[in-house]
Design a protein around this nucleic acid. Structure first.
Length: 759
DNA sequence: AGCACGCCGACT
DNA sequence: GTCGGCGTGCTC
């Protein structure tokens, strides 16, 4: 009997492929090791999933493994089996899942391998970390003569002038000829270039003095004791999972730190997951202060080489704590003992493209399989987690309010937009009470945050003559007017951008009006109404990543009086002297056509309200809404998270949505509407005729046009499967997914298991 | 996803 | 006559 082995190859195909193991390699072909194999006409790096004795399946000629790359498996067995399970749970190709877990160099540098003579263990072709220099280009104050610049040189200069200094490598991503263009610009004295060391990873830029663990309060001690107890049992094939439910400021982080310390003390490693936006130098500093610099911070700003270096340090156990956003769930932490998920309710734990996994759910799975402890923390837990507590699958640990919390709880008032009119600005969303509150706050020398989840200047451009709303040609959504660059219309879904037309495209009337309020206009209006106030804006248009941190830092330093912004303003902690928070339009989030709208809206309100007030000074929150009676608003007003959860759970139970049922969503899209509709019909038919569909154990809803019926030129349809029973849902989903290969190739079909965003 | 094979339009 | 468009089929 020949020795066969199953190999996952880096292609989006659902299955693995079998290869023959030459006798000489038999000893080194182990699950989790990478192998070089011929796949089609190409050589690719695959990962061994399993080996078996047996004969080739009928009608296939097995190819041999060309070489074994790793003498030791790159993936610990625990991680490998977790990845396989994830792949099957989400109906995601195993090759794609492995791609998430392996750094690029480990995954695809076949040429480098061959150049090295395919010697095992010599895959150290990784670029040297540190020492290398980066060339930057910076615009000077010189002004060019009109007309001398054309083509890329002009574009490069324009980009540099708007962005300031940029690495030339970055410019080359946009303009193939950037290097030549920069040279030309430099010869004209319009830019200067400079070679410098790359900036040190911002997370480790400053030394961080070690801290002394503070004394825990009673609730923290109790929580710590429970986690300790669980950690003690982890060697014994036991796992335990907790929901740490505590308001902001109740000391969740300190409990995390103790848990990690307890885990390390037992010689095991830990993964800490935080929402994308929360991974800031301040947060990392707290961990460094306790554990020193032996942390792997996995973030999107890492270069491929740095990422690879981190990954290796984690895998070998040189570093025992990995911290990052959702992809940290794939960290190859050796001897995993603990997974922490901070702000577990946060939407960013769900990956919304490619392999659509939920890192919080996968944290529970991986911890369980690794006999590790999982701790999910939140001030506003997800209904899923609360439900798990009720089922006894999670143990709730409560950190009740701070001792003096009553004194600092912000007073929340609602403003009924149906009855209360505009303030002096004339804008309905800047109501009189809000205007007065702003005046008061500014007069007292305090800061305010105004939250509005609409980017741009005006959310729609409307013809005053015929009422026609300008919509994107490729998407079924209204175009947003942006003030930047002389006023342009933009689609927030496909990023199309174009000039504002002089007349209505329907009736030709030259009477286009800018309707509604976006953050740009809000910023401008507030600045006009309060000329002495320093007003700043924080949204995706002005701030990506590092810039957001800079704006928040100015806020903390008191250099901003009024901060206007989208979701981004709800996340930053310790925002200085903020005593007023205004939610301009709570309904924007609460009335989305999504069964989770109320839950998400509530979380948002609680979070944004949490920005108001400090220990010494109570804050004030104004929530503007057309429906002040709605539960999310009412419970947020009373700061009663538990009661909201109770209420919302009852609602969900009644309508049979998660967590009282499970969902699988098929998203179907195609350029041609009929083609897409037909494909969705085929999927639905397969689901309905499956045994589970026929017996109605699984409900099949749809096919229906998606809420955004057209996006990026593609027509979208959906088929939703719903069931109480997980296994039945899985079977029906598999039956429907089996239809995909028969579907017209112009159609894209994605399966989203446990979907979060229903739009 | 790649990458081939394969059958129909505008060019030397 | 050929170069090349992307439809369709396969990859152990």
């Amino acid at each position: 009997m020949p020795l066969l082995c199953e190999v996952a190859v880096p292609v989006p195909l659902a299955r693995a492929f079998s290869y023959e193991v030459p006798p000489a390699l038999a000893a080194s072909v182990r699950p989790g090791a990478r192998v070089l194999v011929e796949f089609g006409r190409k050589k690719v790096l695959g990962v061994v999933l399993a080996t078996s004795e047996g004969a080739a399946p009928e009608g296939v000629r097995l190819k041999p493994i060309a070489a074994v790359v790793d003498p030791e498996p790159v993936l610990p067995p625990e991680l490998l089996s977790f990845l396989r399970e994830l792949s099957s749970y989400y109906f995601a190709p195993i090759g794609e899942v492995l791609r998430l877990a392996l750094p690029a160099v480990e995954r695809e540098d076949v040429r480098a391998l061959e150049a090295q003579g395919e010697l095992p263990g010599t895959l150290s072709r990784v670029k040297q970390v540190g020492g290398r220099k980066i060339a930057y280009a910076r615009p000077t104050d010189a002004v060019e003569e009109p007309g001398v610049l054309r083509g890329q040189a002009a574009s490069v200069l324009a980009l540099l002038r708007s962005n300031g200094e940029m690495p030339i490598a970055r410019l080359e991503e946009k303009f193939g000829n950037a290097r030549a263009a920069v040279k030309k610009l430099a010869s004209l004295g319009l830019v200067v270039t400079e070679e410098r060391e790359p900036p040190r990873d911002a997370f480790f830029a400053r030394p961080e003095p070690r801290d002394e663990p503070p004394v825990l309060n009673e609730a923290q001690s109790a929580a710590e004791a429970r986690i300790e107890e669980a950690l003690q049992g982890i060697g014994a094939q036991k796992s335990a999972a907790f929901l740490l439910f505590g308001v902001t400021g109740s000391g969740k982080t300190e409990v995390y730190l103790r848990a990690i310390a307890g885990c390390l003390a037992r010689g095991r490693g830990a993964i800490v997951m935080v929402p994308e936006i929360a991974l800031t130098p301040q947060l990392v500093a707290r961990f460094r202060a306790r554990f020193g610099d032996d942390l792997a911070v996995l973030h999107s700003g890492l270069s491929e080489a740095d990422r690879h270096a981190m990954w290796k340090r984690v895998r070998t156990g040189a570093v025992r704590v990995a911290i990052g956003a959702r992809s940290a769930i794939f960290a190859p932490v050796a001897n995993l003992g603990l997974i922490l998920v901070d702000e577990e309710h946060d939407g960013s734990f769900k990956q919304e493209e490619g392999v659509r996994y939920h890192a919080r759910d996968m944290a529970l799975l991986r911890a369980h399989r690794a006999s590790a402890v999982a701790v999910l923390g939140s001030a506003t837990p997800s209904l899923e987690s609360v439900h798990l507590v009720r089922q006894g699958k999670l143990v709730e640990l409560r950190l009740p309010d701070r001792a003096h919390r009553e004194a600092t709880l912000p007073e929340v008032t609602t403003v009924d937009l149906r009855r209360i009119g505009a303030g002096p600005t004339g804008n309905k969303l800047i109501s009189l009470p809000l205007h007065r509150a702003l005046e008061k706050t500014l007069a007292a020398g305090e800061q305010a945050i105004l939250f509005l989840n609409r980017r741009g200047f005006a959310p729609s451009v409307v013809c005053e003559s015929c009422g026609h709303v300008a919509t994107c040609l490729a998407c079924s959504v209204a175009l947003t007017f942006h003030r930047a660059r002389g006023g342009r219309m933009r689609c927030h879904y496909c990023d199309w951008e174009g000039p504002m037309p002089a007349a209505c495209s329907e009736c030709r009337a030259p009477a286009l009006a800018l309707e509604g309020l976006g953050t740009e206009r809000l910023e401008e209006t507030i600045a006009e109404a309060f000329p002495t106030a320093r007003v700043a804006r924080l949204d995706r248009d002005v701030a990506d990543g590092a810039k957001a941190e800079a704006i928040l830092a100015k806020m903390r330093a008191g250099e901003i009086d009024v901060l206007v912004g989208t979701q981004m303003v709800t996340k930053g902690h310790d925002l200085g002297n903020v005593t007023l928070v205004g939610v301009l339009n709570a309904d924007a989030a609460l009335s989305l056509p999504d069964f989770r709208a109320s839950e998400r809206g509530f979380q948002l309100l609680v979070q944004v309200a949490g920005r108001a007030g400090r220990r010494d000074r109570p804050g004030r929150v104004l929530i503007q809404t057309r429906n002040p009676e709605q539960p999310a608003v009412q419970f947020a007003k009373r700061h009663d998270v538990s009661a909201f959860l109770e209420h919302e759970l009852a609602d969900r139970a009644e309508v049979g949505y998660p967590p009282f049922s499970r969902l699988a969503l098929f998203r179907v899209d195609a350029l041609d509407e009929e083609v897409a509709r037909r494909a969705a019909g085929v999927i639905a038919a397969h689901a309905k005729t499956s045994p589970e569909g026929q017996s109605r154990v699984v409900e099949v809803l749809g096919p229906a046009a998606a809420p955004l019926a057209r996006l990026r030129g593609r027509y979208r349809f959906r088929v939703l499967l719903r069931a109480k029973d997980r296994r039945a849902l899985r079977a029906a989903t598999a039956a429907a997914a089996a239809a995909i290969p028969e579907i017209d190739r112009r159609v894209r079909v994605v399966v989203d298991v446990d979907p979060v965003a229903m739009l």
